[in-house]
Every structure is written in structure tokens, then in C-alpha cells.
């Protein structure tokens, strides 16, 4: 220790290893960016209108005029996404647990179902449900109509189910087996161990991928327009037609739809990222 430099500074090799946390190079988006994005759209719309001239409504006026209708369509998108997510999560939890079951037949069947629905295009699943499920069912003489949007919701819940099942399975598997051992030695039954000890620990691990999945579902709901559900994209196309199908309205109208989805999904994405960071630390 006598060889220590007189400055008193420790040798460089003795310095504690410090991990510098660097921000990802992608710039973070703030509300101001969304405002800029909107302003850009308005500008685009404005120039398009200036070129068309004459007594028609400006693109901005068109959007303002139809906004209530378009937004009601957007609310419908959100509704479909939420119901599909709820159904898919409930079914996916069951399917995920079935994959982990002791019974080899049950776990095989659950595994096959999961793989099938996870690796099928969402749009194909949607068509599948739309055309295979009747428009109404009769149960005990009671006729229950099945509107298109309800069928579409079920169609979206199928891929959600398979993805949630995979999330559940992965999270349960990631809990160390020693937790099972400890609970086992305290005389908990397998069912108690799963519901009281393993799954509660999984919630934290499952939440970020689950929210990611939700954002994907919300964005995928526009595919319902292809099968005729009156959601935002369908309404946007109808508004465009109603306004005479002017080409200069394309960008503003669809830009408005983009903006709505962006403003809805981006905060979810940020929140998910924040949760992921927080859970990493603990």
C-alpha cells in the first residue's frame, strides 16, 4: 500500500465497476410531438385544399364536421378491443394452465390449440369466425342475434387467448421450482400453490407483455372494417365517399384515424416500458 500515489486517488483498477445507464438513442415522444404531428396534418390538409379551390369545405372543416361520427367509431374500436382482451385473457389463462397440467392429454391438446391460434394470421381467424358463426343462435326457443361486431370481437379474442396462454405458461415456468418445493413442504395442495403462491408472483411478469398485446389488439381492430363492422376505418371510408371522394381528403381523413390510434396506443406503450423498467430493478 506504500506504492499508492500521493494524490490519494485509488488505483484505477480498484475503482468500483460502474454501469452507465444510457438512454436508448430513439428520441422519446412527448405530447408536444403529437401536437406537431397534428399541426403537420392540418398543414397538409390546408395545402391540399388550397389547390382544389372553390366552394368546397376545407379538409379541416370536413374533419371537424364528421369528428363526432368518426370518434364514435373509434370508441367502438376501443370497446371491441377491450371485450376481446377480456374474453381472450380469461380463456388464455385457462389454456395456459391447461398447458401446465399434469395430465399429458390435457396439456398436449392445450399446447396444440395454443400453437394453432398463435401461428394463424389474425385476419384469417377473423374471417373464420365471421363466416362460420351464424348471425343468430336459438337457445331454448330464444333467438339471440349475433351482430357482426360481436362475432368480430370473438374473432379477435382467439389470437389473444393463444398469446395470453403463452404469456401465462412462460411466467409460471419462470418462477423457480424451489417455490413449489417450499410450498409443498408446508403442505399446500398443488392448486393452492398455483393460485396463492405462483400466479400472484407472475402478475408482475405478465403485465408488460399483456399490455403490449393489448396495444396490438387495439390497432388490429381496424381489420374489422374488412368484414363490414362500422368501426372507425369503415366510417372514415364512408365519410370520404359522402364528401364526394375528393382525393385531397384522403390524407387528412386517414391521418385523423392514425392520430386517434397513436394518441391511444402510445401512452400504453410508454406505461408498459415504465413498468418493465420498474420491475427489472426489484
Amino acid at each position: 500500500m506504500s506504492a499508492e500515489p500521493k494524490t490519494g486517488a485509488p488505483l484505477a483498477v480498484l475503482l468500483p465497476f460502474k454501469i452507465e445507464t444510457t438512454r436508448l438513442s430513439a428520441p422519446r415522444l412527448a405530447p408536444v410531438h403529437a401536437a406537431l404531428f397534428g399541426a403537420g396534418l392540418a398543414l397538409l390538409a390546408g395545402t391540399a385544399w388550397a389547390q382544389s379551390g372553390a366552394a368546397q369545405l376545407s379538409p379541416l372543416e370536413v374533419i371537424v364536421k364528421w369528428a363526432p361520427l368518426l370518434l364514435s367509431g373509434f370508441v367502438f374500436n376501443i370497446l371491441i378491443s377491450m371485450v376481446a382482451m377480456a374474453l381472450g385473457t380469461a380463456a388464455g389463462l385457462g389454456l395456459g394452465l391447461a398447458m401446465l397440467a399434469q395430465n399429458p392429454l390435457l396439456s398436449r391438446v392445450a399446447w396444440a390449440l395454443t400453437q394453432f391460434f398463435r401461428n394463424a394470421p389474425w385476419l384469417v381467424l377473423l374471417f373464420f369466425v365471421m363466416f362460420l358463426v351464424p348471425f343468430q343462435v336459438t337457445i331454448f326457443g330464444v333467438r339471440i342475434p349475433l351482430p357482426d361486431w360481436a362475432k368480430a370481437t370473438v374473432g379477435f379474442s382467439l389470437p389473444v387467448m393463444a398469446n395470453v396462454a403463452e404469456i401465462v405458461r412462460g411466467a409460471v415456468r419462470s418462477v423457480p421450482s424451489t417455490q413449489w418445493e417450499a410450498a409443498d413442504s408446508l403442505a399446500f395442495t398443488p392448486r393452492q400453490i398455483m393460485w396463492r403462491i405462483i400466479l400472484p408472483q407472475c402478475v408482475k411478469r405478465m403485465l408488460p407483455p399483456w399490455m403490449n398485446l393489448y396495444a396490438l389488439v387495439a390497432m388490429a381492430t381496424v381489420q374489422a372494417s374488412i368484414v363490414g363492422v362500422s368501426e372507425m376505418l369503415t366510417l372514415t371510408a364512408q365519410v370520404h365517399t359522402a364528401e364526394g371522394g375528393r382525393p385531397e381528403l384522403f390524407a387528412p381523413l386517414y391521418g385523423f384515424a392514425l392520430l386517434c390510434f397513436f394518441l391511444y396506443c402510445y401512452p400504453i406503450d410508454r406505461f408498459t416500458a415504465r413498468l418493465e423498467r420498474r420491475f427489472q430493478i426489484r
Partner: peptide
């Protein structure tokens, strides 16, 4: 009763 090397407490 049993006590393990890695404690195995329930973290939640």
C-alpha cells in the same frame, strides 16, 4: 418442517 439453503420465502 423443512428449511432450505436458498430460504425460498414467498417474495410477494
Amino acid at each position: 418442517g423443512m428449511v432450505f439453503q436458498q430460504y425460498n420465502l414467498f417474495p410477494h
